[in-house]
Simulated assay, not measured.
Amino acid sequence: MKWLIMSDSHGWKEELSPVVQRHEQEVDYIIHCGDSELYEDHPALEKMMVVKGNCDFGEDFNEEIVKELKGVSLFVTHGHLNQVKMTMTNLTYRAEEVGAQITCFGHTHIATSFQENGVIYINPGSIRLPVRPKRTQTYVICEIEDNRVKVEFYTRQGEILPELTNEYTLA
């Protein structure tokens, strides 16, 4: 199973299409971790599971998604309500509370992945306004096979960033 994960596109519409088109035939799910600044029915978000970020106004999106996808428990949130810019503690408590194996979040605009207390955390960075590394616009392809989880970061142009790639084992 493969997931395309992105976040913090901040109003971009046409710029999302090449990323989706590049991977839509190989992925099973597309996840947007908030701050799209678009409405739920916008064509750019048509094939995505999307959560509400702090820059998303209106009632279009849920604050969280908690879902089981082919036997893997997923938790998606933007992260602002968990204060992820200050601490990961609130997010880790919430992930454990909902029984997540994989947690996807955004808000910080920093591309990262890590595993803590058996939960895999993925922040795809920002597809539009990155902070680090090197201000590179990023997204993620997460491949789950058996208990192995490979998290690969890509530039918006589709080039892999091997220095950010990690592999984990599902707990």
Results as ranks from 00 to 15, higher is better:
Leu4Asp: 08
Ile5Asn: 05
Ile5Glu: 03
Ile5Leu: 08
Met6Asn: 01
Ser7Ala: 15
Ser9Tyr: 00
Trp12Ser: 11
Glu15Val: 01
Leu16Gly: 07
Pro18Ala: 04
Val19Glu: 02
Val20Ile: 14
Val20Thr: 09
His23Phe: 12
Gln25Met: 11
Glu26Ser: 13
Glu26Ala: 15
Asp28Leu: 10
Asp28Phe: 06
Asp28Ser: 15
Ile31Ala: 06
Ile31Cys: 03
His32Ile: 06
Gly34Ser: 07
Asp35Gly: 04
Ser36Gln: 03
Ser36Leu: 01
Leu38Asp: 02
Tyr39Glu: 11
Glu40His: 06
Glu40Ile: 05
Glu40Lys: 13
Asp41Met: 00
His42Ser: 10
Pro43Thr: 06
Pro43Arg: 01
Ala44Phe: 09
Glu46Asn: 13
Glu46Val: 05
Glu46Ser: 14
Glu46Tyr: 08
Met48Ile: 07
Met49Cys: 09
Val51Gln: 08
Val51Leu: 08
Lys52Ser: 14
Lys52Gln: 13
Gly53Ile: 02
Gly53Cys: 10
Gly53Glu: 02
Phe57Val: 12
Gly58Ala: 12
Glu59Thr: 14
Glu59Cys: 00
Asn62His: 09
Glu64Cys: 05
Ile65Asp: 11
Val66Glu: 15
Lys67Val: 07
Glu68Trp: 00
Glu68Gln: 01
Val72Asn: 08
Phe75Val: 02
Val76Tyr: 09
His78Thr: 04
His80Ala: 13
Gln83Gly: 01
Gln83Arg: 11
Met86Phe: 13
Asn90Gln: 14
Asn90Lys: 12
Thr92Gly: 02
Glu96Phe: 03
Val98Arg: 03
Val98Ser: 01
Gln101His: 06
Gln101Phe: 02
Ile102Gln: 05
Ile102Cys: 07
Ile102Val: 11
His109Tyr: 07
His109Ser: 07
Thr112Tyr: 12
Ser113Gln: 00
Glu116Val: 04
Glu116Met: 10
Gly118Lys: 01
Ile122Met: 11
Asn123Tyr: 05
Asn123His: 06
Gly125Cys: 07
Ser126Glu: 14
Arg128Thr: 10
Pro130Asp: 08
Lys134Leu: 00
Arg135Lys: 15
Thr136Asn: 01
Thr136Tyr: 06
Gln137Gly: 00
Gln137His: 10
Gln137Val: 00
Tyr139Ile: 09
Tyr139Asn: 07
Ile141Gly: 09
Glu143Met: 07
Ile144Glu: 15
Ile144Tyr: 08
Ile144Ser: 11
Asn147Trp: 04
Arg148Val: 12
Val149Leu: 05
Val149His: 09
Lys150Ser: 14
Glu152Ile: 14
Phe153Pro: 12
Thr155Phe: 10
Thr155Glu: 15
Arg156Asp: 04
Gln157Gly: 01
Gly158Met: 08
Gly158Ala: 05
Glu159Trp: 01
Ile160Tyr: 00
Leu161Arg: 01
Glu163Met: 01
Thr165Lys: 10
Asn166Trp: 03
Asn166Ala: 13
Asn166Val: 00
Tyr168Gly: 05
Ala171Ser: 14
